[in-house]
Design a binder for these strands. Structure first.
Length: 317
DNA sequence: CGAGTTTGACCTGCGC
DNA sequence: GCGCAGGTCAAACTCG
């Protein structure tokens, strides 16, 4: 079964970041954008994907099988600078990391504040509500918008909707998506106290493409620990730079899929990548040197990445 | 019997 | 205010 993944977007959160700041002029192919804007839109998910200019991504050889819709009713993409700051200011946390992104912390704090502020009310209301009508199942949050967890989306060319990613998920909902014949499924991590959610839907323009959106951060290790299938360095180093992405890397996926994801992620973050010795490749080498040390460490860690990054990319070092 | 899925109803936010 | 669409809940159901 063929599965190809690409990171199409990152989170909508704002916080400190370990991501290097990509100048949009230097990295015109940044493909990250604010997910919250997506959520605010009434457009369908894939439709929104099409809103963004992903043509550079699509030019990547490894993504040639992934089609992204291009609609005539394209909305102007959000301000790049804003996107950049949002993405770059975010510091995602690894599932097992003690450091939590400010966005996540905000979300947590929001919940905590909500709990502190409304616990008494909620207790009373819930007690009464359960006994009254179904309409009062959820305590109303009055004075502030619901905070969203950071989100991370993948486009995966796969025949199965629900991709194995090492975590256990429980489906809690399914909704028909506007303008799409394919429903959107909602999953929640089965681990207690872990409120990571996942949305899975199939592209209506390319039914072979599954769009998986993760929301939140796992507060626990993957229930299925990697053994020999995927070198530990993959997750370790990839998550050090793209913790959220690594968070959701499947321990079962084939090696080329790992490479696929990493390259796609790099591409989505503005790293030009080509699997042939093209000028783009040289650009990759140059540009990655502009990255922060952490990123460099990630990219230069031959010992751990040489299996991921083709040798022709690394030999330029 | 427990865990997971299905599904209709309900909640919420947003645009008009 | 109203309608729409996304998101969530929870009872009923299925499965191992």
């Amino acid at each position: 079964m063929e599965k190809k993944e690409m990171v199409v977007k990152t989170e909508d959160a704002v916080g400190s970041s370990s991501f290097p700041c990509y100048n949009s002029n230097v990295y015109p192919f940044s493909n990250t954008f604010d997910f919250s804007e997506v959520e605010k839109s009434s457009l369908g998910f894939m439709e929104l994907l099409g809103v963004q200019d992903y043509s550079p991504l699509l030019e990547l050889p490894q993504l040639s099988t992934v089609s992204v819709p291009h609609h005539s009713t394209v909305k102007a993409p959000p301000d790049n600078g804003k996107e950049c700051s949002e993405v770059l200011n975010h510091q995602p946390a690894t599932p097992n990391s003690s450091s939590i992104s400010s966005a996540s912390s905000d979300a947590v704090n929001d919940e905590q504040n909500k709990t502190l502020d409304q616990v008494e009310e909620d207790d009373d209301e819930e007690e009464e509500g359960k006994q009254k009508t179904k309409k009062q199942l959820k305590p109303k949050k009055t004075n502030q918008k619901r905070q969203r967890e950071p989100r991370f989306a993948f486009m995966t060319k796969s025949e199965v909707d629900h991709l194995e990613d090492g975590y256990r998920w429980r489906k809690y909902g399914q909704k028909a998506v506007k303008n799409s014949p394919f429903p959107r499924s909602y999953y929640r991590c089965t681990s207690v106290s872990c409120n990571v959610k996942k949305r899975v839907e199939r592209s209506f323009t390319d039914p072979s493409v599954v769009v998986t959106t993760y929301e939140g951060q796992h507060t626990h290790p993957s229930p299925v620990m990697p053994r020999s299938g995927v070198p530990a360095g993959y997750a370790t180093n990839f998550t050090s730079v793209f913790p959220q992405a690594g968070n959701y890397l499947s321990h079962y996926q084939q090696q080329h899929q790992q490479q696929q994801l990493i390259f796609n992620t790099l591409s989505s973050l503005g790293f030009p990548y080509n699997d042939s010795s093209t000028p783009k490749n040289a650009g990759f080498t140059q540009e990655r040197r502009l990255c922060n040390p952490g990123t460099n460490a990630f990219l230069r860690d031959h010992g751990l990445l040489q299996d991921v990054v083709p040798s022709h990319m690394l030999k330029e070092e």
